[in-house]
């Protein structure tokens, strides 16, 4: 579903060349739920932008749902859903429902399919209470649920989430996690999630990839990840060791 082959991405910053991502290769199969970890500035967002076609890779090859994102951006847009936790894609001054209607047109979702999908999302994300509220008046947790629904109305095969639980309270976080878990288990949607919240990883991700300085530092199951540190370490300790270079960087990937 997602294939990266020796992908590199560098930026020119005042005559210096910064390698945000280098020589990154991984494959995510259909139906997987992958956590994508890394310290700030490690290259997570750059990777995600390359997956959506917002950024063109400098070297290497990216394939998502069989398409090359940078060349087929608008075609790919119909096949993937994207959520940026830090900014909304909803129309600020309009009721949530109106944003959804507009998205139906933009993605050319057939009316019947849209109604069914919206009813399902309204129930599973518990949107019923604020469908008619302007987005600017929603709480962060409500807005994030709205954003998730907006990214899924066109029933994408792949869902890419950039810090979807950032700033949310415990209850809202759990709601989102339960929803994502069900989405992956019941609909088989492939999910790639970046986060700084290790609770997301523990609760959701069978597979974890860790990127550091633009390179893949670990790729394996959650169990493999825990095994890189002495026994009885918490996931925080394990990840801290990896971020600060305390453990071997080989992993299993």
């Amino acid at each position: 579903m997602i294939e990266l082959d020796q992908v590199g991405r560098s930026f020119k910053v005042k005559r210096n060349v910064v390698h945000a991502v280098r020589d990154l290769s991984f494959t995510v199969s259909a139906g997987e739920f992958v956590g994508y970890l890394g310290p700030n500035g490690a290259g997570k967002s750059t990777t995600i932008k390359m997956l959506c076609g917002i950024l063109t890779p400098t070297t290497g090859r990216v394939r998502v749902a069989g398409l090359e994102p940078a060349r087929r951006r608008t075609t790919l847009a119909r096949r993937i859903g994207v959520v940026f936790g830090q900014r909304t894609t909803l129309w600020w001054d309009l009721p949530l429902k109106d944003s959804f209607e507009l998205i139906r047109h933009l993605y050319r979702v057939e009316r019947g399919a849209f109604a069914a999908r919206l009813a399902e999302l309204t129930e599973t994300l518990d949107l019923g209470g604020f469908l008619r509220t302007p987005v600017r008046q929603l709480s962060l947790g409500q807005r994030m649920r709205g954003d998730l629904a907006a990214a899924l109305l066109h029933a994408p095969d792949v869902l890419v989430l950039d810090e979807p639980t950032i700033g949310l309270d415990v209850v809202s976080k759990n709601g989102i996690r339960d929803f994502l878990k069900r989405l992956n288990a019941e609909r088989g949607t492939t999910v790639l999630l970046t986060t700084h919240d290790l609770g997301d990883i523990e609760r959701l991700c069978r597979r974890v990839m860790l990127i550091d300085h633009g390179r893949l530092a670990f790729d394996g199951t959650l169990g493999d990840l825990m095994a890189t540190a002495p026994e009885e370490s918490s996931i925080e300790e394990v990840v801290t060791r990896l971020y600060t270079g305390g453990a071997s960087r080989s992993g299993t990937g």
Binding site: K49, C52, G53, I54, R73, T74, T75, A77, R78, V82, F84, R87, T88, T89, L106, Y107, R108
Partner: peptide, 13 residues
């Protein structure tokens, strides 16, 4: 402000 990204993820020019 970074909002251009939200335009680029849509299937419309």
């Amino acid at each position: 402000t970074g909002t251009l990204d939200t335009f680029l993820i849509r299937p419309v020019s």
